[in-house]
């Protein structure tokens, strides 16, 4: 019994440690004060107004959407194509290719950022949307590849052989069988790519100019230079979006499982 209570206390305290900070920041989004502390004197939406109408914040949100969309498209297309290529078991460099595709997740962001700054400057892509999208795509790729290869691995290859034997040409097999079955993986890869871009700061610090300041980048300098409850408002949006995205991912995962689960006998 004391063991049980100790376990329970430990679990609850850890949950508190994990979740409380995220909850603590939420009410501050609605403060009327200019400083970011409790107690909250009175409620107001002024910081959301600031977020949506103050020039710096509004531009940052728009930039995040532009760059996030670009990153999602580029990373999803490149990552999905490559994941399909990786299915070929006879392919000699399969393992090293896969490692290469996953490596951007591992390499420290600052190292990559410094290198990219030099290189993009050489290409004249520094301080441009294209440059930032490229940088974000590099770090979003692993998420797409992991997600799509996971979905593809769940497809029973005999299902595709069956489609062939029933008269479907390779392109048709891909369109009617492979792609629909992999779709949940592609979608969750795309969502993760978007989320990665939205949250990316370090690379943005190195390759983006003042005109490409993203929301995350703006939050970074706001915390550093003049912290205000606008941060809390932005955080509120982020957490709301996270929960939404989380739901989408969970739903598509379970959809994926339901679809590709080998039919129970």
């Amino acid at each position: 019994m004391p063991m049980k209570i100790a376990k329970l206390t430990f679990a609850l305290l850890t949950i508190l440690f994990l979740v409380a900070p995220l909850i603590a920041i939420l009410p501050l989004a609605f403060t009327s004060s200019v400083i970011l502390t409790y107690p909250i004197p009175s409620w107001s939406l002024r910081w959301f107004e600031e977020l949506f109408f103050a020039d710096a914040w509004r531009r940052a949100i728009i930039n995040s959407l532009i760059i996030g969309t670009g990153t999602t498209l580029l990373a999803t297309v490149l990552g999905t194509a490559a994941s399909l290529g990786l299915r070929n078991r006879l392919f000699f460099f399969r393992g090293s290719m896969r490692t290469l595709f996953l490596l951007p997740m591992v390499v420290p962001a600052v190292v990559l950022g410094v290198g990219m700054q030099v290189l993009l400057a050489r290409f004249g892509l520094i301080n441009s949307y294209a440059g930032v999208i490229i940088a974000h795509t590099v770090v979003a790729i692993p998420f797409v590849v992991v997600s799509v290869t996971g979905a593809l691995a769940g497809i029973d290859e005999r299902v595709e052989l069956a489609a062939q034997s029933l008269g479907a040409a390779p392109v048709t097999v891909f369109r009617r069988v492979t792609l629909p079955l992999a779709m949940p993986g592609v979608l969750s890869g795309a969502v993760l790519a978007f989320a990665t871009s939205l949250d990316e700061v370090v690379l943005t610090l190195f390759v983006a100019g003042p005109n490409q300041r993203t929301l995350a980048r703006q939050m970074f300098s706001s915390i550093r230079e003049n912290i205000s409850p606008a941060i809390a408002a932005a955080a509120f949006l982020f957490i709301a979006a996270t929960i939404l995205i989380g739901l989408v991912v969970v739903l598509s995962r379970s959809m994926l499982e339901r679809r590709t689960r080998p039919a129970a006998s």
């Binding site: 900070p21 920041i25 995350a216 915390i223 941060i231 809390a232 982020f238 996270t242």
Partner: peptide, 8 residues
């Protein structure tokens, strides 16, 4: 977001 957690 990492920034949200850091801000928190």
């Amino acid at each position: 977001s990492l920034l949200v957690r850091t801000a928190a």
